[in-house]
């Protein structure tokens, strides 16, 4: 059994805790949160060992691994504390606001050989995994354009209140929504290197942007755009998609459906020339416990299995997440300049 503790039981944390709670290879040894309202509830109705101070928890329960799901501005200090104790870390996205600190953490995990994962869950969605396979196989040809999009109804009226509406704390559509799209492009197409243009629009929020549009260029000179808006009420929930144009075909994928066009008969197994459609129902691998989507359980399984097998995780490392943070920063800077 892997001894896991969790710091932060907000929206993401409580879902991670439930998935971990049902995990057959995990023993939850501690739960920490500064909100007494949340911790008192768990004290009353669960058998978890509850703390309001995470440092006390670490001293008291010695976990093998910790899931960190606190507001982004607190990530770096907490994660540093954990790595110094050689504890494996899963931290929510985005990784770090302070890039120098991010660099330091990447260096530390390499030296100390701890498993380090960031919660970019899209990489565990069957449709996007299949896109990765197709792109890697080369059947789409040379990529000449990409478009990453994400829309949802988070801020649909003028009002503001919590840390997500404060840019200094990691709030705003760029950090919260666009980070997913940037990270997905980095993974599926190639790491983004340059920002060629940025529009950050406030629609309802006063302090942060509600929409992000940017022109980007990858390290191998592929250009494309991202279009992200969290104030779009025509979407019932967050909806992320990617389009990739290549010399031998085209891919359009979202979380439910994959559409692929090949212009020759040289296709991967299971595909033919012309349009092919596959759905998440056939592309997603079953999980042992389902909460909000297979991907949320799958990323936790991957983290736990990496610890058990003592394999370095390749997906969603601190290093790849830091690269996403750097591009977020470049987009912000471009806007400022």
């Amino acid at each position: 059994m892997i001894k896991v503790a969790i710091i932060g039981i907000g929206k993401m944390g409580i879902s991670h805790l439930s998935i971990l709670g049902a995990h057959p290879k995990v023993e939850i040894v501690g739960v920490a949160d500064t909100s007494k309202f949340s911790t008192d509830m768990l004290k009353k109705y669960t058998s978890f060992n509850i703390f309001n101070d995470y440092k006390k928890m670490l001293e008291s329960v010695s976990p093998d691994a910790v899931v960190v799901s606190v507001p982004t501005k607190f990530h770096s200090n907490i994660v540093k504390d954990l790595i110094e104790r050689n504890i494996h870390v899963f931290v929510e996205k985005p990784f770090c606001i302070d890039l120098d600190m991010g660099e330091q953490l990447v260096k530390m995990v390499k030296e100390r050989n701890v498993i380090n994962q960031v919660g970019y869950h899209n990489k565990f969605i069957g449709t996007f995994e299949e896109v990765k396979n197709i792109v890697t196989s080369g059947h789409i040809g040379t990529i000449n354009h990409f478009e990453g999009e994400s829309y949802g109804p988070v801020v649909i009226k003028r009002k503001q209140s919590n840390w997500r509406s404060n840019p200094a704390e990691g709030g705003g559509c760029l950090m919260d929504y666009a980070s997913h799209v940037i990270d997905l492009v980095n993974y599926l197409v190639a790491p983004i290197q340059n920002v060629r243009g940025t529009i950050l629009n406030s629609i309802y929020s006063e302090n942060v942007e509600d929409a992000v549009y940017a022109l980007l260029e990858t390290e191998n000179n592929i250009t494309g755009s991202i279009s992200v808006n969290w104030s779009d009420e025509t979407y019932r929930k967050m909806t992320t998609s990617i389009t990739i144009n290549g010399t031998k075909g085209k891919i359009i994928a979202d979380t439910t459906e994959l559409q692929v066009y090949f212009n020759t008969n040289e296709c991967p197994n299971g595909y033919t020339k012309g349009w092919n459609i596959k759905n998440i129902t056939t592309l997603s691998k079953p999980v042992d416990f389902f909460l909000r989507g297979e991907e949320y359980s799958a990323q936790i399984d991957y983290f736990i299995d990496s610890i058990i097998m003592q394999n370095k995780n390749r997906k969603n490392t601190f290093e790849t997440a830091l690269h996403t943070d750097k591009i977020i920063n470049q987009i912000k800077k471009y806007k400022l300049s």
Partner: peptide, 9 residues
Amino acid sequence: ANAITEYGI
């Protein structure tokens, strides 16, 4: 879920 993102628990 959308409300928690905006307002907290």
